[in-house]
């Protein structure tokens, strides 16, 4: 059942600020249709640099639409500097609160605003463009995760997922998110078990098989995909992705990278993974 406040329902069913602005001064989109939500924010400034009009278009659930509308309620009429200080908490508070698992909708509102302002000022949008992508499924950077963990004093991966969606897909980045949480809260990350110093070819192949079977496949299968080991040639590991993974538009950057990272961590830091599976062309 939906655990939404009356205010969320009202702004979802009767949004005040849907639409487009011709020749907007600010125009930014965050999210995308593949990830399940996206918000386009358009702003027109008056001569004094105040927000004269703002409109949104949103693809997403009720709380995403309500959060977009709330964002505009909060920024309209304000000077850009002042508007840029609106946070995701302000959005959630305006709506009388959001369910924990929907906090990422308010974060999307804040991101759209900050991106629009950064673009207008010709500055880099650091939450998206700087730092490194941690969650490849939803394209979330370490910058954003760090910011949200610090501002909301988050302690678990699940909380980070609620606020940013990071870690809500294949789960391959949970260790990285844990490391960020530890770093923000001033704890050293746990030391990794070192891989054995030398391995024969046969040992290496066996170990690769083991890691794929017990560590990698369950993760991919949980996501509707799969991977098969095709061949090992020295330090080159040839794999073929199956199912969802085979046609995922981002499988090149995500899966190969994720499989390689895992194998390097647990078997040999010099391994190189190649995807030799035939790509299904489904778009």
């Amino acid at each position: 059942m939906w655990d939404y406040t009356e205010k969320v329902r009202d702004h979802f069913l009767n949004p005040r600020h849907v639409g487009e602005i011709a020749n907007p001064d600010l125009d930014a989109t965050v999210g995308n249709i593949t990830c399940g939500d996206a918000l386009r924010l358009m702003v027109k400034l008056d001569k004094a640099g105040r927000i004269a009009d703002a409109r949104f278009q949103t693809f997403g659930c009720a709380s995403a639409i309500a959060s977009s509308d709330a964002l505009i309620e909060l920024i309209k009429g304000k000077a850009l500097d002042e508007a840029a200080r609106v946070t995701n908490d302000d959005i959630a508070e305006y709506l009388g609160g959001l369910p924990e698992a929907k906090m990422h909708c308010s974060v999307m509102g804040m991101e759209a605003l900050q991106k629009a302002v950064a673009q207008y000022r010709k500055q880099p949008f650091e939450l998206e463009e700087e730092g490194k992508i941690v969650c490849r499924c939803f394209g979330v950077t370490d910058r954003l995760i760090e910011k949200i963990v610090r501002e909301h004093n988050l302690r678990t991966v699940e909380e980070v997922t609620h606020y940013t969606k990071a870690g809500g897909g294949c789960g391959g980045c949970h260790a990285e998110i844990e490391a960020i949480i530890a770093r923000v809260h001033g704890k050293a990350p746990a030391a990794k078990a070192p891989a054995p110093a030398t391995m024969t070819n046969l040992q290496r192949i066996n170990r690769i098989q083991e890691v794929i079977q017990s560590e990698i496949r369950p993760l991919l299968q949980a996501d509707g995909g799969d991977v098969e080991l095709v061949d090992v040639d020295g330090k080159r590991v040839q794999v073929a992705f199956r199912g969802h993974c085979a046609w995922c538009p981002v499988s090149d950057v995500t899966l190969k990278g994720a499989v390689q990272a895992k194998l390097r961590e647990l078997v040999d830091p010099e391994l190189v993974v190649e995807d030799v599976g035939e790509r299904l062309n489904k778009s």
């Binding site: 249709i33 499924c137 939803f138 809500g168 199912g243 969802h244 489904k282």
Partner: peptide
């Protein structure tokens, strides 16, 4: 948003229904 996770139905994904 209704599947209890952040990804759409495993059935539709297995069928290759585009995320969109």
């Amino acid at each position: 948003c209704t599947s209890g996770s952040l990804e759409p139905s495993h059935v539709l994904r297995a069928m290759g229904v585009p995320f969109t």
